[in-house]
Structures are given as C-alpha cells and as structure tokens.
Design a protein around this nucleic acid. Structure first.
Lengths: 342, 342
DNA sequence: ATAAAAACTTTACGCGCGTAAATAAGTTGA
DNA sequence: TCAACTTATTTACGCGCGTAAAGTTTTTAT
C-alpha cells in the first residue's frame, strides 16, 4: 500500500490513469462508468486510500447524501433502538445519517431543524416532540426539506407518516384484560403527543364497545421523565385509593414501570396470581419491560417495520422528487405480549 | 423582515454595508471586529437571516468546529445521558457536536472513526467499546485527531482520560455491605472493558482488606444486552444454588436489574427487611435503577463532572495545540446511593 | 493637533470538487 | 469495415468562503 499522500481528486485521477471528471463520475455512481475503467479506479483506490473531500462534494452538489434523524428524547431506549435501526438502513443505502435528539425541548427541536437545513439534507426522518412542537416551524421546515414523520403524527405535516395504530393497540390490550379479569382503568399523564390522546380515546371506545364504563385516571406531571411521573402518580393514586379497578392499563410502558415501582413500595403484589392485588399492563414493549418485576404485559410496537417503512418512504420521496402523490399515513398493528404482570 | 434571498456572504456584506472579509472575520469571532461594525452586521443579520454555508466554511478552514462524540452503545441510557450533557456543552461553546454510537460493534467503531476523520473535527470525545476495540485503529486515530477518552480507558491512547474510580466504587459498596450484613459475593459477566476488571479486582482487594474471603461468580454472556445476561445468569445461579452469600454485589446496575428480575421470578424477596432472602447492589446509578423493584442500592457515577471535565480537557487540547503536556487521567469518586435493595 | 495604531476596504487567489461543452477514443453491429 | 453510438478526455468555469497583501479610513494616545 503506497502511502504517498493523495491530496485531491486531481492527484488521484493521475495515479489511477483516469481523467478527473470520470473519476468524479465514478464516485457519484460507480456503475456509471465502463467496467474496465471502474476496475482501474478501484485498483488505485486500494493502493492509495483516497476519499473525496466531503465538504467540497457537499458544497457543489445541489443535494447532499445527508439524512437527518431527529428524535424527541434519545435517553428513551425505544428511540435509541429505532434510531439505530434507521441509521443502519441509511448507511447501507450509501447515505450519511446524522442523529439528533431534541431532549424533550421544543426550542432545541427548532434549533435542530434550523441547523439541519444548512446541511442541505437529501431528506429527514423526524419523530416530533408532539404537542410541544412548534407546529409552524416544523411545517415550514417540511416545506423546504423532504421529510417523513414517524412515531408521532402532526396532521398534514411532512410528506408521509409512519407509526403505530394506537387505537388498535389499546383495543387489543383492553380486550385481553376484559377477557381475563376485571375491566381495566386507564392510567395516564397529560398527553405529550397525539399518540397519548389516541390511546386514551381508544381505551374509552374499546371499553364502551365491550359494555363497560371507562375510568380514566390522569396524574399530574410533565416532561419526558415518564417513570418518575408514573411512580409519583402511582403512589398518590394508591394512597388516595383512587383506583377504580384491580386492573391498571397504563398509557405506555415507561409510565407502567414507574407505576410498578410505586406498587412495590406500597407492598401491592402485581400479577395474575390469586395472591396479587393488581394487574398492570402497558403499551410499546419497551426494551426494559421484560425485566420489570414482574415482567410487563404489553402491546409490542413493530420497531423493525416502522423503521423499515419510514426509510422506504423517505427514499421513495428522494427519488421521486417530492410530488410523489398525496401524503400517506402508514400505521402498523401491535401484538399482545403476555408476561406476568397481567 | 426582508426575505429577499441572500445567497452568499458577498450579498450579505453588501446589504449590511460592510466588506466581505470583515464579515467573514465577524463570523469567525464576533468580538474581533469593532463594536460599531459588529452592531451593523448584527442588525443586518436580523433583517436577512443569513448563515454562512457550512460546507464552504469547513472546506476552507484548516480545522473545523466539528466535535465527534462516540459512545459504545447508545441504547444504554447512561450513555444517552452523558452524550446529551456533552453535546450541550459543546454547542454552548460554539462547536458542532455530532453523535455516533458503535452499537457494541467494533467494526462499526472503526468505521465511525474513519468517517470522523474526513469531518476534520477539531476534536473527538471517545468512549471506546473497551476490550473489543481495535486498539491499533483507535490508537492511529488518536494520533491524527485530538481525542479525549472517557468512561473506558485504553492505556496510553488519546491525550487524556476522564472516568470513574472503579476501584473506589467497589470499595465503597463492599464496605457498606460488610458493615450492614453478610459480606457480598460478586456477580459479573465476562468483562467488556477495563472498568469491569477494575471492579472485580477492587472487590477482591476490598474483601481481603476487610478480612473476608472474596467470592466471584461469573456468568456466561456477551454483547451489550446486560439485563438479559443478568437475568439468565441470575436464574442459573439461583437454581443451581451457587450463591455463596445472601448479599450480591453486581458489577453494574444493568446486570443487577436483570438479576432482580430473576430473583422476582424465583420468588426471592430482595431488600434489607427481615423477610428478605437477598440483598442486591450495583454500580453506576443507572437512570432506571431507582425504579427497580426494589429500587437499587448503588454507587453513583458523577455524570455531570465526567462530562464537564471531558469537555474541558478537549477544549484545553484544542486551544493548546496538542502538546499540552503528558496524558492526564482523571478519575471521579462515586457516592453511595442507599435504596431498598441492600 | 498629530503621529501611531487599529480596523476596515479592495483586490485577488486558492480550497476540492461538480459539471458543462467540445473533442477524441473506444465499442458495437450489420 | 465503417457508420452510429458510447464513453472518456480536455478545458474551463463556478460554488462560497478563508485569507493574504496593500491601501484607506477611523480610533487612540500623546
């Protein structure tokens, strides 16, 4: 391996015996040059490990190969997992994914979108904060940059949305719980995004459909420290005896994990067994749910499919040059994951 | 706000009535121009929201304002938290942090370092995978790019290291446990990084210093799904009655959370109370530890200080132009966090 | 007021690459 | 073999900005 320093494409073109414009063409699309010249270039590429200057490339291309991935809260392993999945798909397709987290802060979310704009990304995959998002700012961004929303929808914003069918999620869990014991009450906090609303409303619908009176218990709390909210709210609800059923369906798993901690602290045994005081279930199949005490019965989001379809939708958008028809919303169904908690 | 499109610095300079070189100077350091001209520029900046093309800027600067942050496993909220902290400090200082996760894969770690190189970063904050890291590749990278290691040390690599004093961590926990009950056995998995080794060795030392015979229990398992390893290992150890003490000190909190799940499944009550079969403790004060059942007694890492000092060290390095003396290792002490589990 | 210093303007070049136009060379098929 | 394509080469310009040099204006200090 000749380690003489190749400083630019000019020099690399010389040592490979191919003209610079052709080499440039090669780097934009290796299959766009004759197999013979491609071989010569790749041969040289192994001797001198040259890589085009990414800043110069991005400056001159009208559209870069950058893809922005924005999640609302990266310390939530759900988003970490889905981001990982999306990231790898993008890389495989030859893009440069960059990951951002709004850390639960809408001002930061806007800031991220602003600096993302200057990255001239080919596209963006955005899981918005939700209710807290600056709708106008997000909408304006989506007008400028091809964007696919995922996880949390903002009606009419972005070229597509990929997420879960939250109404179906709750229908599944409610029906299961009603079938196997007391009809559940619904444990929630002030909704951070439309998903939370859909879940509550879905709960109410499903209960009524099954002929039961819905009982929604909303505890106070804000921000993205859901476990904390579930824990404090759980203690409060238990101490004030506000539970209207021995079965508690939590809006999401993180809330449920906090609620479980509260139950534990108050000595209330959770599970299906006869000696248990409560059944508790959640939604999402959060990575940590299976290690709860007891392991949490929940509805599993299809991480794989959500990330796969999101990326697909974005690529389609990028190739199709925007006007790829109307805004499409894709919702995936969840699956019941029965564990010991309910 | 005049929305006429300012396409480049030339045009912006014209509308602001300042020459382009001076405007350029302003963007590199606003305080480097006379207050009066600064005011004129900033006035224009509000009318026409112009931002220098980041690709052109980075191409021409010898060193960019980019900072790479590399963590071994982002789905671990510990790293997510510390990354968030570091990220914000970098932004405040006017840098462009970019976050990467090796996802537990050493090949990906090398790949990240490679593409990081082409970002011409001013510096990099790297929490290496540890034992799995390709030492030669990491070392070579650190030769080329000013790098501060954190969390997991690689002797002699990078310009500085910032982490926790794992020996002290274990000393703290061992002494607490010995003082308040049976001397603990040590529950670990095959070490992924030097920290794990230091913890085990620290345990042995501390036990001997207190006049007890150390008992290390190593369970099988690999990868970064620590909870799973702790859970499976826990079941195995319980079923085969391998526990040599009623007090189990886990190498880290994630392992402990898995172990707690195993205890729960086997009906072993964990805690300090008389009716409890086991005491369990961990290390790190992982974000989820306080929501365990029972909440986990642990030794808290000082997230704040680790990230603060890491960033400080890197900035010092960036300003000082490398030769800022010898490699410095900074270790922070942990604090005992007493919860219900031990 | 006046010289010295500081800050600014003008002019010009270079960074590394995308890309267009004209031309030359190579490939294909009958 | 020769025309009709394809593909590569040569030449040249532009992207938006950093930055150096030389000249001009403004500020500071005496």
């Amino acid at each position: 391996m000749d380690d003489s320093k190749i400083r630019n494409m000019e020099q690399f073109a010389r040592v490979s015996g191919i003209s610079r414009p052709t080499v440039s063409k090669y780097f934009n699309d290796p299959s766009s040059v004759r197999p013979k010249t491609r071989a010569r270039i790749e041969e040289a590429l192994e001797q001198y490990d040259y890589r085009p200057n990414i800043f110069a490339v991005n400056q001159n291309r009208r559209l870069t190969k950058n893809i922005g991935i924005v999640v609302p809260y990266l310390a939530d392993p759900f988003f970490a997992e889905i981001a990982r999945n999306i990231e790898q798909r993008c890389m495989q397709a030859g893009f440069w994914p960059t990951l951002f987290s709004a850390h639960g802060d809408s001002a930061l979310e806007v800031e991220i979108l602003d600096s993302l704009r200057s990255l001239k990304p080919a596209g963006v995959l955005l899981a918005p904060l939700g209710r807290a998002s600056d709708r106008a700012a997000v909408e304006k961004f989506c007008d400028d940059v091809p964007t696919v929303l995922f996880d949390s929808n903002i009606e009419g914003v972005g070229e597509a949305f990929v997420g879960s069918d939250n109404t179906q999620f709750v229908k599944l869990s409610v029906e299961y719980l009603c079938r196997t014991g007391q009809p559940p009450c619904f444990f929630e906090m002030p909704p951070v995004n439309p998903n939370a609303n859909k879940r509550r409303n879905g709960y109410i619908q499903a209960m009524e459909a099954n002929g039961f009176a819905p009982q929604v218990i909303r505890v106070a709390g804000e921000g993205w420290g859901f476990e904390e909210v579930g824990y404090r709210g759980g203690l409060d609800v238990i101490d004030r005896k506000l539970l209207t059923s021995d079965t508690v369906l939590c809006s999401n798993d993180r809330l449920a994990i906090g609620f479980l901690a509260a139950c534990y602290e108050r000595g209330m045994r959770v599970g299906r067994d006869a000696d248990c005081a409560l059944r508790v279930a959640g939604h999402d199949d959060h990575p940590f749910s299976r290690f709860g005490c007891p392991p949490l019965t929940t509805i599993a989001q299809d991480y794989e499919k959500i990330s796969e379809r999101s990326v697909e939708a974005l690529f389609h958008l990028i190739e199709g040059g925007r006007s790829a028809g109307p805004r499409i919303e894709t919702l995936f169904e969840g699956k019941l994951v029965m564990r010991a908690s309910a």
